[in-house]
Design a protein around this nucleic acid. Structure first.
Lengths: 108, 108
DNA sequence: AGTATATTCAACCATATAGTTGAATGATAG
DNA sequence: CTATCATTCAACTATATGGTTGAATATACT
């Protein structure tokens, strides 16, 4: 068992949490500070801050300082990698749908 | 903290494990029995069996009995759901970097 | 300077999960 | 019927993770 952790481990485990997916959803519309985001959840500030750190490690968000706050914004990197991973399988189920399509076609 | 676990929780946490991703990779080519898969890893039979159960719960694979073995095959359901989730974000990195949030449907 | 605000860090607790071993179930072959 | 093969179940251990609280750091306000 190797010690190495793949980027996909980090990305997918980040996406596996509903709070973190909700954070991403909000960030699609606009940037927020950590505090603005934290207000929206029934969690402590520290808990939300940790969720954001997890998203950051997965390259799903980026932070940059603005005064005393940290602005959080979406970072497409992680999502792109996840998408690229799924792409390997996309043909597979589209293939099945195609086959179903042709099957229906043949019955006509 | 809500008790409900979304399908996406299950799907993404399944995909977060490298052994499970490797199982899926093998299954892209062909079906295998649980035992055939287990042979390929430096893990106990039971451990691999449990990984497959996790994949099954996430609708990433299906099993069906054949004689005394269980044949395992890919099931596109889970992967499709993951793909549909990522689709909401695809526009963000595919050139349209303007804020188009208003008409994105809000999906957790 | 001194106080308030924003965020992180550290220590800790509870629960979930990956792994093990050994027993139990189920199907096939003699 | 019994022995064997394929798989799962149960109990347990170790580690990772989500959550908390309280202290620490950094910037802003007056």
């Amino acid at each position: 068992m190797v010690e190495y952790t793949s980027p996909l481990d980090t990305i997918f485990s980040s996406l596996a949490d509903p709070t973190r997916r909700d954070l991403l959803r909000r960030l699609r519309r606009q940037d927020y500070s950590v505090g603005e985001l934290a207000q929206r959840y029934d969690l402590t500030f520290a808990a939300v801050s940790k969720h954001i750190q997890v998203l950051e490690r997965a390259n799903l968000v980026r932070k940059h300082k603005r005064g005393r706050e940290q602005r959080v914004e979406l970072s497409p990197g992680g999502l792109q990698q996840a998408d690229k991973y799924l792409e390997q399988y996309r043909a597979l189920w589209e293939g099945r749908l195609d086959r179903l399509g042709t099957f229906l076609e043949d019955k006509k």
